[in-house]
Simulated assay, not measured.
Amino acid sequence: MTTAFTYLPRVAEPEKMTEEEEAHYARADYSVPHEAFVDEIVAAIGRGKEISLVDLGTGPGDVVLRFRGKVDWDLWGVDFSPGMLAIAVEGATARLPASARPINWVIADTKRTGLPSQYFDAVISNSVLHHLEDPLRFWREVERIGKPGGFVHVRDLRRPPSDAEADRLTSLHVGRESEVVQEHYRSSLLSAYRADEVVQQLDQAGLHGLQVRELDDRYLEVVGWRAEPA
C-alpha cells in the first residue's frame, strides 16, 4: 500500500448533489459495478435466507432493484433526496413485475435514519462515504441499525495519490459520460477517504470484525460479519 504521506489532502465536496448532478447521475451507466456489488453480497449471505437488508444512500435505487431481481429479501432503500427516490419508485414500476415483493423506500439522512435499532441483518452502502464530512456519524448509524453479528458491506472510492492519477481514473472509468458526471466523479475521488482513515473511523464507531481492503484501481470496501458482543 502507498504510504499515507504521499496522498493528496482530502478536498470535501457537498453532501448533497445539485439537481443537475442528480439527473446526470441517474442516467449514467453503472450497471457493471452495481451488478458485481450485488452478486458479491448475495454470494456472501446466501440466497435461501430470509433477511432484511438496507441500502444507505440508495440514490436512484439501481442496487436495490438489482437485489429484487435475484432475491426475495425484505429490502429497504434510504436516501435524503426526494428526487432520487422518485426515480427509484419509477424504476421499480418499470423494471419489476407487479407481483414482486414491495421495496421500502425511506427519505432520511444516512447519518440519522430514524429506523429501528438492531433491525437489519445486512447494512450496505455504495459510493456514499466520500460525500460525508462527518463519517463517524454514518458508521455509528450502521452500528445502531444493524444486528449484532450482522453483515456489512460498504463500498466507496478511495483517494488517489495525485491529481494526475485522478485525471487518469476519471478518463478511464467515466470518460464517455457527460461532462457533469466526469467533473463530479473527479471531485468524488478527491473527497474520498483512504483505507487507513476508514480503519480509524470503524474503531471509533465500535464496529469490529470487519475488513477494510483496497479493490481494483479506485475502490475500497468495508466488508464482513460484525463481531458479536463479548
Rank of each mutant, 00 (worst) to 15 (best):
T2K: 13
F5R: 15
T6S: 14
P14T: 10
E15K: 04
M17H: 12
E19C: 00
E22A: 04
E22W: 07
A23L: 13
Y30K: 05
Y30D: 00
A36K: 12
I51D: 07
L56C: 02
G57F: 04
L65W: 09
R66V: 04
W73Y: 08
G77N: 10
V78L: 01
D79F: 02
D79Y: 07
A86Q: 14
I87N: 10
E90L: 13
A92G: 14
S99V: 11
I103D: 00
I107L: 13
A108N: 06
Y119V: 01
I124S: 00
N126D: 06
L129V: 15
P135I: 08
L136W: 07
W139Y: 14
V142S: 07
I145H: 12
P148D: 10
P148M: 06
H153L: 13
V154E: 02
R155N: 07
D156L: 07
L157S: 08
S162T: 15
D167K: 15
R168A: 13
S171V: 11
S178Y: 02
E179V: 14
Q182K: 15
S188Q: 09
S191W: 03
A195S: 13
E197C: 03
V198C: 05
Q201A: 03
A205S: 11
G206K: 05
D217E: 01
R218H: 10
E221D: 14
V222P: 03
E228L: 15
E228D: 09
